[in-house]
């Protein structure tokens, strides 16, 4: 499988404004993301996960180390548009990433910047809006839509650039449960259609839906593996002030009380299936 993103010994420092102190947001992170994969990066606020996302999109550049996106080095200025076109980004606040006061014009913004032909833009905009189930709202003003709908518009704006990869930077943090569900189901659909997904989040139940979970803590990678592998470290995860899925937590509690439960139970469905054997 070929590589979409390769990060080698990334360090990112910045100077904090209020006291001129040098802060290390990312301290020596190496990570490879394969094409077509679905990776969740999870961590507390301040763990460096959002900084990492912005380094992938060349919105921030490494203090040391290298980031390759689709083979392009993010530090090379001439490749920056290729990088942003191949790895698009969706941000946390649905309001502050929509440029135009008409939905379809906003979705057109990316392709317009890339210099795509007008008829081709029209087609991309329609396709993207259909992909996020927002085609019927194409003429509306964004401020009249719900949070989840706005976030879907932002996703359509990313898709319209025809990227191979989309980096989602806490896309559900400001949404209600319904909006969160809408956005997660679109993300999973995009992954099934072959788009490489990197999902930055602090909700473990969302991360558990990925193929791979990378846990960041204080600028470093603390755990990395499939959900099954990562959740074996329930105590370490709790120490990093993150939650584990309910089924994992319950299994852990029951095991502590002497009940033998297999370690690969992650979802509620798996838990119920296990219980059924004892009926």
């Amino acid at each position: 499988m070929s590589e979409m993103i390769r990060i080698e010994n990334l360090v990112f420092n910045y100077t904090r404004e209020q006291d001129d102190e040098e802060i290390s947001a990312i301290r020596d992170v190496s990570l490879t993301v394969n094409k077509g994969s679905f990776t969740a990066i999870i961590g507390r606020n301040g763990s460096g996960k959002s900084t990492l996302a912005k380094n992938i999109n060349a919105l921030l550049l490494p203090s040391s180390g290298v980031v390759y996106v689709n083979g392009y080095d993010t530090a090379k200025e001439e490749d920056v548009w290729n990088i942003r076109q191949s790895a698009a980004m969706v941000f946390q606040n649905p309001d502050n990433q929509i440029v135009s006061s008409i939905v379809e014009d906003d979705v057109a913004f990316g392709p317009e910047n890339l210099g795509v032909e007008p008829e081709q833009i029209r087609k991309r905009v329609d396709d993207s809006l259909k992909a996020v189930n927002m085609y019927q709202h194409r003429k509306k003003a964004p401020h009249l839509l719900s949070g989840g709908q706005k976030q879907r518009i932002a996703i359509a704006g990313a898709i319209a650039m025809r990227p191979e990869c989309i980096v989602f930077d806490e896309p559900t943090a400001m949404l209600d449960p319904k909006g969160r569900e809408e956005v997660m189901s679109i993300i999973k659909e995009l992954h099934q259609e072959g788009i490489t997904v990197v999902l930055i989040t602090h909700f473990m139940e969302e991360a558990a839906q990925a193929e791979r979970i990378v846990i960041m803590d204080r600028g470093k990678i603390a755990l990395d593996g499939t959900p099954g592998e990562v959740f074996l470290h329930r105590d370490a995860i709790q120490e990093m002030n993150l939650d584990v899925p309910l089924a994992v937590e319950l299994s852990w509690r029951l095991r502590r009380r002497g009940i033998d439960i297999p370690e690969d139970i992650i979802s509620m469905e798996e838990m119920v299936e296990f219980l059924c054997q004892y009926k």
Binding site: R84, A88, M89, Q97, V99, G157, A158
Partner: peptide, 9 residues
């Protein structure tokens, strides 16, 4: 930042 990420130049 969002505009830059969408290749605005």
């Amino acid at each position: 930042m969002a505009m830059e990420a969408r290749c605005y130049r």
